[in-house]
Design a binder for these strands. Structure first.
Length: 403
DNA sequence: TCTGGGGTCCTAGGACCC
DNA sequence: TCTGGGGTCCTAGGACCC
């Protein structure tokens, strides 16, 4: 009873220009230089990560590589060692877990930490209040990541995840920003609506159309107007209710759900170097996508009931077609389904830009059934290939095209 | 040389069952 | 005979995030 009801203490921790930072560990000469990780100039593709030095030229992640090259022809363009990033992310997570047991992975470079329960552990008599305590601890977390891994991180602390996230964005690079309970409105009001997590280009355009520029404007929108429900949900978060946030440690935030599945879908897609109309090339791509996505499912002992084909034509028109079948992770069955979907939906007069295959309706493969099931559906060579890949990585081995 | 690839969540309509 | 739900599953598309 000494402390008043503890406020939620949500920290959003974000690794600054993560892929670029990892590349700099391997090649220190990249430090201080404009670096783009992503597609190489001259190919189809986009910027995956941009260093602050190259952002000064207007380069942003997600931007087409051709445009990036136009803005910053002298930057260093690298495709990046994507095999390394996951390992560093795991190391970061291990550090975070030293500080609080509630750590959620939002993406490879973003984590949410909940200090609500354990803030008292860190309290010292010198701390003016618990906010001071938390801010000090979070600075220590960032410092530890920097000292042990050489990676810069930023963090925001608030009573809710959206505000913590916005605070971490404001804190970048390599800073910590605390938004105290009661300061949310003041923090949020001057910011453009687009800064709110969940308001993207489409919602922003609609809001601007209605003369709503800042989150302060949005907060004034009455519940009954067209954007009233959006305004309401922002108000609820901003005015915030610590207990709501706590009670809302919801599925997206969890690592393991009761069934043990950690993902809702597994997919692979790929864009052709140039658009194709050749059925042989298309089928070959479908086959290799299928091989990859099924391998990923088998590794995780996952079966899928719904198979989705994604097809993007040269003009960027994109369609998805799905079919639900008996749960499987066997290439032959998935490919059969995908080819049928393709046959039923492909307009043969058009060139294809991208193909993708997604598995969803996932369930855990019952260990007992796995073997006989495999036996019937997959030749022994299939299992041998899996075993090689398990040891040496997916690209260690490839099967020739089936005839 | 416009526009990658991995995901999540939401909506909405239709089928089907009770 | 007519009317009317509610619940769940499936599919398609789209917004959004990193």
């Amino acid at each position: 009873m000494g402390d008043p009801t503890p406020n939620a203490r949500i920290c959003c921790l974000d690794l600054d220009t993560f892929f670029v930072s990892v590349e700099r560990l391997f090649r220190p000469k990249l430090i201080g230089k404009p670096v783009v990780v992503g597609a190489l100039p001259g190919t189809r593709g986009v910027v995956t990560a941009a260093s602050y030095e190259v952002r000064a030229f207007g380069v942003r992640s997600g931007m087409g590589i051709a445009e990036a090259y136009r803005l910053a022809p002298n930057a260093i363009y690298i495709s990046g060692r994507h095999g390394e990033y996951g390992g560093y992310a795991s190391k970061v997570k291990k550090i975070l877990e030293r500080y609080t047991p509630i750590v959620r992975t939002a993406s490879i470079d973003e984590y949410f930490l909940n200090f609500t329960q354990c803030e008292g552990m860190y309290r010292t008599p010198k701390d003016a209040d618990s906010d001071t305590t938390i801010e000090r601890v979070v600075r220590e977390v960032c410092q530890t990541i920097h000292d042990e891994l050489g990676l810069p991180a930023s963090a925001g602390i608030a009573t809710s995840r959206p505000i913590a996230k916005m605070a971490s964005n404001v804190a970048k690079p390599a800073g910590v920003r605390m938004v105290r309970d009661g300061e949310e409105r003041g923090f949020v009001e001057p910011l453009p609506c687009r800064k709110w997590p969940g308001i993207g280009p489409v919602a922003e355009a609609r809001l601007l159309e209605a003369g709503i520029h800042t989150l302060g404007d949005l907060l004034k929108v009455p519940a009954t107007s067209p954007d009233g429900s959006l305004a309401e949900s922002v108000r609820r978060t901003v005015d915030a209710l610590a207990e709501t946030e706590l009670g809302r440690d919801r599925p997206a935030f969890r690592e393991h759900d009761p069934e043990g599945l950690t993902v809702g879908s597994i997919s692979n897609e790929s864009t052709f170097g140039h658009d194709v109309g050749d059925l042989y090339a298309i089928h070959d791509r479908l086959r290799s996508l299928c091989e990859r996505v099924c391998w990923r499912a088998r590794r995780r002992a996952i079966l899928a009931r719904t198979i989705t084909l994604k097809l993007r034509y040269a003009d960027f028109e994109t369609l998805t077609r799905a079919r639900t079948i008996k749960a499987t992770n066997v290439e032959k069955r998935v490919l059969g389904c995908v080819k049928q979907l393709f046959r039923e939906n492909y307009d043969g007069r058009r060139q294809v830009r991208l193909l993708g295959i997604a598995l969803s309706g996932l369930e855990e493969a019952p260990a007992q059934l796995q073997l006989p099931f495999d036996e019937a559906e997959r030749p022994p060579i299939g299992r041998a290939v899996d075993a090689v890949r398990e040891r040496f990585g997916y690209d260690a081995i490839h099967l020739g095209v089936e005839t």
